[in-house]
Design a protein around this nucleic acid. Structure first.
Lengths: 108, 108
DNA sequence: TTAGTGTATGTCAGACTTGACATGACCGCA
DNA sequence: TGCGGTCATGTCAAGTCTGACATACACTAA
């Protein structure tokens, strides 16, 4: 399955850059990882702009500080769902989330 | 939240937590669900445009016909991750996915 | 130093998601 | 009428993700 490959990648900690030697990590998977990284970067910016601590944001979304840290760190154990929930919890709009997902520059 | 809207969602199998004290959380939940529904609608359009059957798309993404059906049906058991992977498998770009996520009309 | 605040990282049981399968409904066609 | 192709829905073992916790690190102030 595709999943085995993905897991292999994840064990190397998102070696997104040059997975060339790493079997054909499908183009799709790379794009998905890129999106996640874009969102996690945006999440940190959004949280800092709101001057929230990780613990405060965690509280807002019913999660924990450690998971928020992982979200912002782009940890492979974090789903797209959770990243989006995190951004929503900072008050981001769908449009803002979409823009982050597309990889646009942080406007703030 | 709008009663009719909620009912509609529940008919599709989504359970929307509705305690008054969790109003804010429900609001973000709702937005998340809206995004998923937008993406699933877009997925069906993208697949049909490419003239792929559910089984063919499933094959492309290493999944199964039944799961693709659930994706397009907006089944709650389908994650955002999987929907995005599905769209990527149809050849959609990040920008197109972002646009779908934001709820824009299908432009193409 | 010690204390306080904020963040990072590893672990794990329990909850959730997944692919696969079975099965049924629908449609067009011979 | 049956047949082949497509899609929908339910189920479930196996796999993944999650919140919580413990702990460590960085920095600041007393």
């Amino acid at each position: 399955m595709d999943r085995a490959k993905k897991k292999k990648l994840e064990q190397r900690g998102w070696t997104v850059g040059d997975a060339a030697d790493f079997l054909e990590l499908s183009e799709t998977e790379l794009r998905l990882v890129e999106m996640k990284l874009s969102l996690s970067a945006r999440l940190r910016k959004a949280r800092e702009k709101k001057r929230l601590t990780q613990a405060e944001l965690a509280d807002r979304m019913g999660s924990s500080q450690s998971r928020v840290a992982k979200m912002e760190a782009g940890d492979p154990s974090v789903s797209l769902d959770l990243l989006v929930q995190g951004l929503l919890a900072t008050g981001a709009s769908k449009r803002e989330i979409a823009s982050a997902l597309a990889g646009k520059k942080t406007a703030a």
